[in-house]
Nucleic acid binder design. Structure first.
Length: 573
RNA sequence: GACUCAGUAGCUCAGCUGGUAGAGCACAUCCCUUUUAAGGAUGGGGUCCUGGGUUCGAACCCCAGCUGAGUCACCA
C-alpha cells in the first residue's frame, strides 16, 4: 500500500514502527510474555496497608496518556478492564540514556499499542489505584488509530456509535466500548447456565448434521449448496429437530444441541440469516412437564446473570419468576378479538380475517390463517413471560394431537415482550399420523406455500421402529440474549452479524498505471487527484489533465519534474 | 418493498438566506515529575457519500444513485 492512501496519522505510526526497529526494538516480538495480575484484580483487591501487588506484571493496550514532563500517566487495558500506570523517566531509564522514555514511550508509542509492564501497585494523590512502572516492554504496535472514547461519572464522550462501523469492525467496538464485551460475556454465561442444568439432569449434548439433504423440522426457506462428489444439492439446516428425535428413537433419554440454523429470509432487528437455537428432547415427558422445565431454565438464567428474576428491557421490566402465565391460543384470540374461532372451517376463518382487516391469500390453509390472527392481534400483547398453549393441528405438523381435542395439538410457545422465545411439543410419535401430516404439508406446498415442510421418509421410518413419548423444546439463544442483556437488535448479540459486502476499493494497482506509461512518482498523484483507474484518465482531455497535474504539483509543493504534454498524451492514448 | 431521517477531519459533531470549510477530542512540535472526559502554547490535517443539473458561484437548492438508521409491510 502506498503512503498516499494512508491518513496522516497512519503514516506517522508507520514511521514510528520503523524508528523502533532502528533503535533495535522489535515492535512485534515473538516471545511469550507472562503476566501475574490483571487490571480488575488490582483495582478490586489492592490495599496499601497489606502491601500486596508489589511485584506485578501486566500486559495490554495503552488507552490514554498524560505526559507531564519527566513523569506520565497512562491507562493500560487488559481483558478485565483498565488500570492507570505511573511512568517516571528516571525509573524506566536508570542510566544516562533516556531514549526509552523520551523517544519510545513519549513519541513512538501510541494509543492502541500493546505493552507489557513490571511494577508495583500504589495509590495516587487523587486516590486512584495505579501501577508504578519499573520496566516497560513493547509487545505490539498498532498502525491504525482507535476511536477515543472518554467517560466521566458515567457520561460518555465521543462515543463510537456508528452501527455500521461497530458491526463491520467489531474488534474496534470491543476495544473501545466495554458494555459490548459485557453483552457477549453474558451470552456465554446464558449458554453455560443452560448446559450445566441439562447436564445436571443427565441429558447428553450431541451434534447433528448442518448439511442436510432434506431440510426438515421447521417451516422456512433454506439455503442451498452443492456437494460435488455426490453431485446432489445439500441444504443448510433450518432446524435439527428431526435428527434429535432420531436419537431418542435410538435410545437416548435426553439429548440437546446448541445449533446454528440458517434461514434464507429477510433480515431485520430480530432476524439474522444464521442464528443459534438450543433444542432439547426428553423421553417419557409431555409438554406440561416441559413448561415447568422451561420455566426453571429461564429463571436460572436470569438469576445467574442478574441475581434477580427482574430484568430491564427498554423501558419495561420483565419478571422471569416462576410460574409463567398459561393461556390457550383459542382463549387468547377470544380475549383479544372477541371472536371464538373454535370449530371454524377455512371459509369461516377467512371471513374472520377479513372482518379483522388481516391480509390473507389463497395459499393459506386453516393453520396459517389462525397463525395470522394470533400474530396480528394477540402476540404483541404478551410482554411478561406467557405460555401460549394448544395450537391448532394444521399449524404443527410435528406435534402430537391434544389428548382432549383432536383439533388441537399439545404445543406451547413462550412469549416474552411480544415475541416468540421458545417453542415446544409433546412430540408426535405416531408414524402413520406423522406421514399424513407430512402429506398435508405437501398439499400446502402444491398450493403455493413455499415454507411448507418436505417429507422426510427416513424420519418416518425411524418413528415406525418406535419412539417413546417425548417432549421437545427449542429456544432462540439470540433472542434470549437480547432479552437478558437489554439489547433491542439481534446485531448487538452476535459478534459478526451478517452485513452487505463492503464496497471494494476499486483503485488500479501501480502495474496498470506503469503499463500505461505513467512514471512511478506520478501514480499516487493521479490517485490523489481522483483518478483511481487508468481508464478514468481516458475520459479527460490531455490538455486539461496536463494543466491539472502541473497545478497539483505546484499547489502541493511536491517538487516533481512536470511531465511534458507529449508524456501526458501518451498515458491516455 | 414503502416512507422518514442521515452521510462534512482518525472519532463525535457544528456549518444561517447559496459566497473559498469549523469545533472538541485524536495527531505533530515545544513547555511541564502526580494527573483524571488529559495541564499550557502553537500547528498540520478535508473526494463536504457518488454522478448529473440549476447558478457568476453549491457542503447547502433540484434529479438520480450508493450506504446506513428508524417506522411500517413481508417474513418466524
Amino acid at each position: 500500500m502506498s503512503t498516499a492512501e494512508l491518513s496522516e496519522q497512519e503514516v506517522i505510526r508507520r514511521n514510528s514502527l520503523a524508528k523502533l526497529r532502528e533503535l533495535g526494538i522489535e515492535p512485534y516480538p515473538a516471545a511469550e510474555f507472562q503476566v501475574n495480575a490483571k487490571a480488575a484484580e488490582i483495582k478490586a483487591e489492592f490495599e496499601p496497608e497489606k502491601q500486596n501487588f508489589q511485584e506485578v506484571t501486566l500486559a495490554g493496550r495503552i488507552m490514554s496518556r498524560r505526559i507531564m514532563g519527566k513523569a506520565s500517566f497512562a491507562e493500560l487495558q487488559d481483558d478485565t478492564g483498565r488500570i492507570q500506570l505511573y511512568i517516571n523517566r528516571d525509573e524506566i531509564c536508570a542510566g544516562e540514556d533516556k531514549t526509552l522514555y523520551n523517544d519510545v514511550f513519549k513519541k513512538l508509542l501510541d494509543i492502541g499499542d500493546f505493552i507489557g509492564i513490571k511494577g508495583f501497585a500504589f495509590t495516587t494523590q487523587v486516590g486512584e489505584k495505579s501501577v508504578h512502572v519499573k520496566e516497560l516492554i513493547v509487545l505490539s504496535k498498532s498502525l491504525r488509530p482507535l476511536p477515543i472514547v472518554k467517560e466521566k461519572d458515567g457520561k460518555v464522550y465521543d462515543a463510537f456509535t456508528d452501527p455500521e462501523m461497530r458491526y463491520r469492525q467489531r474488534y474496534v467496538d470491543l476495544v473501545v466500548n466495554p458494555q459490548v464485551k459485557d453483552t457477549f460475556l453474558k451470552r456465554t454465561k446464558i449458554v453455560n447456565t443452560m448446559r450445566q442444568m441439562f447436564n445436571e439432569y443427565g441429558y447428553l449434548e450431541v451434534e447433528t448434521p448442518i448439511l442436510q439433504s432434506i431440510p426438515g423440522g421447521a417451516a422456512a426457506r433454506p439455503f442451498v449448496t452443492h456437494h460435488n462428489a455426490l453431485n446432489i444439492p445439500l441444504y443448510l439446516r433450518i432446524a435439527n429437530e428431526l435428527y434429535l428425535k432420531r436419537l431418542i428413537v435410538g435410545g437416548f433419554d435426553g439429548v440437546y444441541e446448541f445449533a446454528k440454523d440458517f434461514r434464507n429470509e429477510g433480515m431485520d432487528r430480530t432476524h439474522n440469516p444464521e442464528f443459534t437455537v438450543m433444542e432439547i428432547y426428553v423421553a417419557y415427558k409431555d409438554y406440561k412437564w416441559m413448561m415447568n422445565f422451561t420455566e426453571e431454565m429461564i429463571e436460572r438464567v436470569a438469576l445467574a446473570l442478574h441475581g434477580t428474576t427482574k430484568v430491564k428491557l427498554g423501558d419495561k421490566e420483565i419478571d422471569f419468576k416462576r410460574p409463567f402465565k398459561r393461556v390457550t391460543m383459542l382463549d387468547s384470540i377470544k380475549e383479544h378479538t372477541g371472536i371464538d374461532i373454535s370449530g371454524m372451517d377455512e371459509v369461516q376463518l377467512r371471513a374472520v380475517c377479513k372482518q379483522l382487516d388481516i391480509d390473507v391469500d389463497e395459499s393459506m390453509g386453516k393453520g396459517k390463517l389462525i397463525d395470522e390472527i394470533f400474530g396480528e392481534k394477540c402476540e404483541g400483547n404478551y410482554i411478561q413471560p406467557t405460555f401460549i398453549i394448544d395450537y391448532p393441528v394444521e399449524m404443527s405438523p410435528l406435534c402430537k394431537k391434544h389428548r382432549d381435542n383432536p383439533e388441537l395439538t399439545e404445543r406451547f410457545e413462550l412469549m416474552v415482550n411480544g415475541k416468540e422465545l421458545a417453542n415446544a411439543y409433546s412430540e408426535l410419535n405416531d408414524p402413520i399420523d406423522q406421514l399424513e401430516r407430512f402429506q398435508d404439508q405437501l398439499k400446502l406446498s402444491e398450493k403455493g406455500d413455499d415454507e411448507a415442510m418436505f417429507i422426510d421418509m427416513d424420519f418416518v421410518r425411524s418413528l415406525e421402529y418406535g419412539m417413546p413419548p417425548t417432549s421437545g423444546m427449542g429456544i432462540g439463544i439470540d433472542r434470549l440474549t437480547m432479552f437478558m442483556t437489554n439489547n433491542q437488535s439481534i446485531q448487538d448479540v452476535l459478534f459478526f452479524p451478517q452485513m452487505k459486502p463492503e464496497k471494494k476499493n476499486e483503485a488500479d494497482g501501480d502495474e496498470k498505471f506503469e503499463a500505461a506509461g505513467v512514471p512511478g512518482e506520478w501514480i499516487d498523484v493521479l490517485r490523489k487527484m481522483g483518478f483511481k483507474k487508468v481508464d478514468a484518465l481516458k475520459e479527460v482531455k490531455a490538455g486539461k489533465l496536463f494543466n491539472d497535474l502541473c497545478g497539483f504539483n505546484k499547489k502541493n509543493k511536491l517538487g516533481l519534474q512536470n511531465p511534458t504534454m507529449e508524456d501526458v498524451t501518451g498515458w491516455i492514448a
